[in-house]
């Protein structure tokens, strides 16, 4: 794949995923109520009928029969027989990606999980971006011993294998969403700070910066006008790759059972959950796994594309 194509494909599929996760709830028909007794582990494409009673109960089953004055909702263990006068409404819905152990619509879960996974990773990347850029700029502008000290600290932090650091932090602070964002962000800003520092140091000696300084530009103006625009490209590339790593890290923690609590759907958690019923419900682990892969690959393509564009642009 050529660089522009990679960029297009990466950005395209990433956009598609994000839009699907965000817009899904408005576009798709409302998912049927979760009926664990009658609609659990239905394969992708199954069609179910949702029966709502006037007192607000909901039954969902692939087999609903209306006969005379009764409505029979079939279930694997026992059938529910309702009086027709008790039924407020009935509708048929297709479960495009099937249902899980609780009879929940997998498509809906997948989209909800995507929103959480992507949001957590994006916010964590933001945390990393802010901390990493801050530390990198601080080190570069301080210089001397302070710079050396900061960078040794960064080196030491970089030596920790990411997952080890995450497990350590997750064991210390049991994650809710906010803690998880902080933990992920704080374990992945080090590379960024190195990048920023390196870029700033390289730019500092360049003619246009020296010229600006000679022309009496303030330090703040040089940051804004010269450093930031030049750093933005490498940062964008780094951010794309980092986001992919963060999605993987979040899902790994969820899979290991030390990520978000299991009542929040996440892709990693769905894979772990799906592994429990791999034989009866292959789609439960497969689909979120593929979703993670798709997201990570799009981000990798995007990062590659950006990198090559930068390389050719600079040449």
């Amino acid at each position: 794949m050529s660089a522009p194509r990679r960029l297009r494909v990466g950005a395209g599929s990433l956009g598609l995923l994000v839009v699907a996760c965000l817009a899904g709830p408005w576009v798709l028909p409302v998912a049927p109520a979760a009926d664990p007794a009658r609609a659990a582990l239905l394969p992708p494409g199954a069609v179910v009928t949702e029966v709502t009673t006037i007192d607000g109960r909901a039954y969902v089953s692939p087999e609903v029969e209306v006969e005379g004055e009764t409505v029979t909702v079939a279930g694997p263990r026992r059938d529910e027989v309702l009086a027709r006068t008790d039924v407020a409404s009935m509708r048929r819905v297709r479960l495009w990606l099937g249902s899980d152990r609780f009879g929940r619509d997998v498509l809906g879960q997948l989209l909800a999980g995507g929103r959480i996974s992507v949001a957590v990773a994006a916010l964590a990347a933001l945390v990393a971006l802010v901390v990493g850029t801050g530390v990198g700029l601080a080190a570069a502008s301080a210089g001397g011993a302070v710079d050396a000290a900061i960078m040794r600290l960064v080196d030491a932090l970089l030596a920790f294998p990411t997952l080890f650091l995450l497990i350590l932090l997750a064991a210390l602070f049991r994650p809710g969403p906010a803690v998880l964002v902080a933990v992920l962000g704080l374990s992945s800003w080090m590379g960024l700070s190195r990048l920023v520092r390196g870029q700033v140091l390289a730019l500092r000696g360049r003619d246009f910066v020296l010229a600006a300084r000679a022309a009496g530009a303030t330090e703040g103006r040089i940051w804004r006008r010269h450093y930031l625009p030049n750093i933005a490209g490498p940062l964008a590339q780094d951010a794309a790759l980092r986001l992919g790593d963060l999605v993987l890290a979040e899902s790994t923690l969820s899979f290991l059972g030390i990520g978000l609590p299991p009542d929040l759907p996440t892709w990693g958690g769905m894979v772990a959950e799906g592994h429990r019923v791999m034989v009866d419900g292959w789609w439960l682990a497969t689909l979120p796994g593929l979703a993670i892969a798709l997201l990570v690959i799009s981000l990798a393509l995007l990062g590659d594309g950006i990198q090559e564009r930068l390389a050719t642009g600079a040449a």
Partner: peptide, 16 residues
Amino acid sequence: AAENELRQDIALLVQA
């Protein structure tokens, strides 16, 4: 208990 999947399942059903 976070360590007990059955009890989590129960909590989710009770919630519904």
